[in-house]
Design a protein around this nucleic acid. Structure first.
Lengths: 231, 231
DNA sequence: TAGATTGTTAATCGATTAACAATC
DNA sequence: TAGATTGTTAATCGATTAACAATC
């Protein structure tokens, strides 16, 4: 079995630039690849072929190779892909090594649920604070995360160079809170309010979560039973 | 302005059957149409053209007409669409009139957050119970919803003819809990565990929510700033 | 009737799959 | 070297957009 370092050396010289326009369909699949590769690492797998990975994920091997090649050659002909290396590279693409900093605005049930998970840190995203309007909880900590007044949101984001704002406030407040953050240099909004948030700042990326829409999609499939599977 | 009843009469005779294979892309857009039409109703709008709706949603008018025509003619040439009527029809397609019954399994932070929302009832889905393994909360109510022991899950689902199971248990428990529900006649699983749940029962529909994947997608876009907008 | 706007067909675009030459 | 498997091009499939005839 060849030395991994040797293989990496070979890899490095072949890695091309990311293609100009990576299809959004590809980007949406990257986190899934990353998750499965993480599991393979835990299982102690060293290498994997696109064929084997395709069986695991239930997609075609062709698609996997095509997808990965949007970012340059991560594999090696005749060998396949080095699991750890590929996991690391996809992680880099997804920004886990960027040290993104985030705050959660809205310490209601959903905000608390997000404060309780390890979802952020597991992906290299640091949670700095919660913000809320309820004076009873301002100044306390929730799952170790300090809670501040929403009045301080803008100043905090600017001072702490917050990258991402998580929005779990009521729909009515979503826009104004997002606006405050955008003006304070926040570059990404993860929006759980049940609406499409659109901001007048094209440089700010918005990712909308629509749990209700997902529930309805499931209901549709239940109604027309025998329909299509999976998400 | 014509009587709405007259228009409905005209509509009814033209409504065709749902086309054999509705593209999943179309199904995913239906909840969004439904939401915006609900807002238009609240604003008192009676009718709308595909052109106007397209501007509101930021999609092409062509797509809206094409999408709606998968389910038959909901509009009227020269007039447009009757807002209330279209909202109702899409709601029917999405099962809001079916009276689906659901239970939430896992009364952790996310389970509680789901217990607190009005998301379900607003979409015609009834929440019957929470299930958990923690003896401290079994027998109590959370936001008015009774909490039972997970031991009783199967019997409860069978007896109460539960349609949908919401899974907010740890990843490790997800499969076995889903299996119990599927055997007890549950036809849909809304899965929040961070994994693709695949069950050996093809008749059971599974909708996976991957919050972590969504966060990573946002991080990707932040990294390659100037990239694609929206979800 | 004339004007408006749908429903629907045809054209375009993008994404997935298949095939195979390059190469480790 | 021979075998395996990638990277990549070409073919297929599906989804979106454009155009327009049907019709209210």
């Amino acid at each position: 079995m060849e030395s991994i370092d040797k293989i990496h050396g070979t890899f490095e010289k072949r890695i091309a630039e990311t293609k100009a326009n990576v299809p959004t369909a590809v980007i949406k699949r990257l986190p899934r690849y990353h998750r499965y590769l993480g599991e393979l690492i835990r299982e102690g797998r060293m290498r994997i072929s696109s064929a084997e990975l395709s069986e695991l994920l239930g997609v075609t091997a062709s698609q996997i190779r095509q997808d990965l090649n949007c970012f340059g050659g991560f594999g090696q002909q005749g060998y396949g892909y080095n699991v750890k290396y590929l996991h690391g590279k996809i992680g880099e693409l997804l920004g886990v090594t960027e040290g993104f900093r985030t705050v959660i605005v809205g310490a209601g049930n959903l905000g608390r649920a997000l404060a309780a998970t390890h979802m952020f840190e597991r992906r290299g995203v640091e949670r700095l604070a919660l913000f809320d309007v309820n004076p009873d909880i301002i100044g306390t900590k929730i799952y170790g995360i300090p809670v501040y007044s929403t009045d301080e949101l803008g100043e905090f984001c600017r001072r702490e160079r917050v990258d991402i704002g998580v929005l779990t406030v009521p729909k009515e407040a979503a826009f104004s809170v997002a606006d405050v953050m955008a003006r304070a240099g926040v570059r990404g909004i993860w929006n759980f309010a049940n609406m499409e948030l659109s901001l007048p700042y094209p440089e700010v990326e918005v990712e909308n979560i629509h749990l209700g829409d997902s529930l309805m999609t499931l209901c549709y499939r239940l109604k027309s039973a025998g329909g299509a599977e999976e998400d």
